[in-house]
Amino acid sequence: MSIQITILGLGRIGASAGLALGRHSNQVERTGFDYQNAIAMQAKKIDAVDRIEVNLPDSVKQADVVVLTLPLNKVRETLKTIAPNVREGAVILDTSPAKESVAAWVKELFPTKRYYVGINPLLNPLYLADQDESIESATADLFENGSMAIAAPEGTSGEAITLAANLSGLLGASPFFCDLAEMDGLTAFTHLLPQLVSTALLNATLDQPGWRDGSKFAGSDYAAASSSIAGHEESASLCAAALLNKTHLLRSLEATLAALYGLRDDIENDQGEQLESLLEHARVGRAQWWNERHKLASQANELQSAGMPKAGDFWKQQVGFFSRLSGTRPPKREKKD
């Protein structure tokens, strides 16, 4: 007996989740769907899924867990399409950067007894500098020694949240819990803001009269500072995330503008001591964050070893879970070729 997991969206995150879950093939059966059939076929080729489904509604009919790893601008329409086909007791997990909005869509579009839990993977530190979000960068250890932020609407079944936490363990991540607004706030200044700052840098320089020559001078510093916009969401998805996460993001943008104006004022007024202090504060702070991020990974690995369920116990911990949520017995399934 295995849990049926459908992954919608087979880019780096979705395919990596499939690869990690593939190490527990006696526990889960993986169905994959992607709007680009070539990507779905590639996911099957690298064994990120057991089977692919080209029909979106059909892909979720038998799912115990539906995992959305899609660009945000595709999430609402996808939810609307699959809502009639998601069975009672199913848990819907979502990695998009606007959890409050997605939770509201699920409540609006789905019948009762379908349970939404927002997740946000904090990746293995080995891959912190990797900006490529395509399936070519998928790897089974993407989540190892990392954490999984988990948030759910008020009143969500504790068993649905527990399932998300246990599934995080199968991926190699340690869960931590927050509420939807907190997750959106953290996402705004750690995920969305860097992409908008990269956008501002690029738009401020690409159209300058001297860019033809400047492009030859631009090196590693420019590449690093502009890289956040390079490999993440499609522009339409980033736009949707910025607008849906407006309140939190505007607060972060205001703080960033204040910091930039502070640097500008110190430069204009020849405040060398103050300017150097700000630069050093940033340099030291970045180094501390980098070291702490790797230290947290080590602690997460210890927690994973000590407290998280073993892979072989995962299904045992879910026995009765879906029957309690849906009021029916979980069907027996044979693994498909």
Rank of each mutant, 00 (worst) to 15 (best):
F314P: 07
T95G: 08
D313K: 02
E100G: 11
V49H: 00
S305Q: 13
M183V: 09
M148E: 02
S237Q: 09
T6R: 06
G11A: 00
D130H: 11
V28I: 07
A204R: 09
P309N: 00
Q208L: 12
S16K: 05
L278H: 13
L128V: 15
I39Q: 03
V117S: 05
L8H: 06
F110K: 00
A230M: 11
G172V: 01
L275Y: 06
I39L: 11
R329P: 08
A173E: 02
D50P: 02
T187E: 00
F176T: 05
L72I: 10
E88I: 12
A311P: 11
K113H: 09
I92K: 07
M41W: 03
K80S: 15
G272A: 15
L19T: 00
P153D: 05
A242K: 03
G219T: 03
M308V: 03
R212Q: 14
H294A: 14
V91I: 10
L186I: 15
A15R: 01
R251P: 07
T81P: 11
E154A: 14
V91F: 06
I92Q: 03
A15Q: 03
P209C: 06
P97T: 04
G146Y: 04
Q36G: 11
N269W: 07
S101M: 09
L257I: 14
T95W: 08
F177E: 08
E254M: 06
D313W: 00
R30N: 04
D50V: 00
A104P: 06
I267F: 04
I5H: 02
T199K: 14
A20T: 06
D266E: 08
L167N: 02
V284Y: 14
I267M: 05
W211K: 12
A138L: 03
S134R: 06
G185R: 12
T139C: 06
G89F: 03
A230E: 13
E276F: 10
V67N: 14
A218P: 04
A188P: 05
Y261F: 11
T199P: 13
I13M: 12
V65I: 03
A83R: 11
N145H: 00
S228Q: 10
S198V: 04
A225G: 08
K61Q: 13
H232G: 15
E268K: 14
F217M: 10
N166F: 04
G172P: 02
A218G: 00
K336S: 09
A138Y: 05
G169I: 05
P194I: 11
L279W: 02
E29H: 10
N291H: 15
S305D: 01
D337E: 13
P84Y: 01
Q299L: 08
A225T: 09
N291V: 14
T139Q: 10
H191S: 15
Q299H: 07
A188T: 06
E273A: 15
D265N: 03
E234A: 15
F189C: 12
K316H: 10
W315V: 15
I135L: 07
R114C: 02
N203Q: 12
K80C: 15
V60T: 01
P97G: 01
S237F: 02
I135V: 08
L180P: 07
S174V: 15
Q131D: 15
Q318C: 04
A48W: 01
A15K: 04
G22P: 04
A160F: 06
L109G: 04
D34V: 09
G327C: 06
K335N: 11
E29L: 08
E234H: 13
V28D: 06
G155W: 06
L263H: 02
T205V: 14
